[in-house]
């Protein structure tokens, strides 16, 4: 009886730890011989799917990416903030408007909360060679009310 109680207690404590925390699993966006991109959702509300078609040290311009998510917010306007960290220090910060109300650029602009979106297509990135090292990239998508639409902590490992 005692043994059973003790076992039950331990099990509860362990499951308590796992049950209450909301850390999303780490996914792989792409992996190649020299480049690996991992990401983890930092939006407490949801996880999402993301992948990059090509994955090479010599980053091509206009990369094809896939992105799927169920929206938690309307996205009449959508903005992307990218912050690049290396060794815990922010070295680059970039903000980019993705959706604007007047003549929106992408077909997913103006989608509604609760709607599922799937984007497969090129992104407007410049091509460059990634220097060797490990980088942290914080990507944050937010709408006109500054509500988070999606958030990801990505790790780029280039060897």
């Amino acid at each position: 009886m005692k043994g059973f109680t003790a076992a039950f207690l331990i099990w509860t404590l362990i499951s308590l730890n796992g049950g209450c925390s909301q850390a999303w699993p780490t996914h792989t966006a792409c992996k190649d011989g020299s480049l690996e991109v991992l990401y983890q959702s930092c939006d407490p509300l949801q996880d999402f799917g993301f992948s990059v078609e090509q994955c090479s040290k010599q980053l091509k311009s206009n990369l094809n990416v896939r992105f799927g998510i169920i929206l938690r917010e309307d996205i009449k306007q959508l903005y992307l903030d990218i912050t690049l960290f290396t060794k815990e220090e922010s070295i680059l910060s970039y903000s980019y408007p993705i959706c604007e109300e007047d003549l929106p650029k992408f077909s997913f602009c103006g989608r509604r909360k609760g709607e599922q979106i799937y984007f497969a297509g090129p992104v407007n990135n410049p091509g460059f060679e990634i220097p060797q090292g490990e980088y942290q990239v914080l990507l944050k998508l937010y709408n006109e009310n500054h509500s988070t639409v999606a958030c990801a902590n990505a790790t780029v490992i280039c060897s």
């Binding site: 207690l9 308590l16 209450c20």
Partner: peptide, 21 residues
């Protein structure tokens, strides 16, 4: 002795469950 263990066996998981909610 048995009733206290049993009580603890019920109470503590219950509290853990409630705190998890």
């Amino acid at each position: 002795m048995m009733p206290t263990t049993r009580l603890a066996g019920i109470l503590i998981p219950a509290m853990a469950f409630l705190s998890c909610l």
